[in-house]
Design a protein around this nucleic acid. Structure first.
Lengths: 128, 128
DNA sequence: ACTTGACTTGGAGTCAACTCCAAGTGATAA
DNA sequence: TTATCACTTGGAGTTGACTCCAAGTCAAGT
């Protein structure tokens, strides 16, 4: 799979994919004879994983550490689990914050809806 | 209320509070005789609102637009409602993404837990 | 043979949102 | 009176995460 295909499939720009590789978030992708990236199944899976994690706001630094540990093999399983657990906890905290904000937004929107209704009533006398 | 108190109460740095005022996210706060900010109830409420919205990731630009409309009075109620509704929808979308990520994290963590259990079993022979 | 188009690189630029700094002021404590 | 301390300003610097660019390579189509 060429970079443009991966880019399209996951809606990540080619620039970003190269950037991820440059900073070590994705290990060096294999190249064909003319030096062009050829993403294999493992590469694509990793892109998918990164995309998912990034979409939830996990920092790139943490993800670099995590994929580094994955590369190092089974001895790092505990460390990897710890990272995921910590990020999970931070994610839950962020979601709770967002839920609070959502509740406030819903309340404010309902207040505005009522304000609009009231205005409409004023414009249309009861007799009609 | 002096800036340091507001800062402490809402865990927002004084620098950030001054920054918010400078960019128009908070309207100019009243000063005492020596030019020092004295936040009144309305100011504090606004800080609280901003903090809540920012913690959920609503962009500063959007919030500036919103508080600008609030300043302009009742004629802007529809526009304000539209902004809040749009941001609500974006927020729900982000939360859905995060829920997907949370599910994947939980799955991965459970896989790691099992891997650890398996390792422990290997170390402790059945006979014991 | 030449153009087109997708790729390559290293490095610079951008953006949002802060965060820090130097130099100055004014009220209180020793 | 002098030191301390919280505040003030305008402006510069930082951070995280991209995003863009110029110059070059290579394979395929006309």
């Amino acid at each position: 799979m060429r970079i443009a295909e991966v880019s399209e499939q996951y809606a990540i720009s080619s620039d970003t994919l190269r950037y991820y590789e440059r900073i070590g978030l994705i290990p060096p992708v294999n190249r064909n004879e003319s030096g062009i990236r050829d993403y294999n199944g493992t590469d694509v899976k990793r892109v998918e994983f990164i995309k998912c994690m990034r979409s939830a706001g996990l920092p790139i630094e943490v993800l670099i550490e995590y994929v580094g540990l994955v590369q190092q093999g089974d001895t790092t399983i505990e460390a990897r689990k710890d990272i995921l657990k910590e990020q999970r906890q931070l994610l839950v905290a962020r979601m709770k914050e967002m839920q609070k904000t959502l509740d406030l937004l819903d309340y404010k929107i309902s207040v505005y809806e009522n304000a609009v209704l009231k205005k409409e009533k004023e414009l249309i006398p009861i007799e009609l």
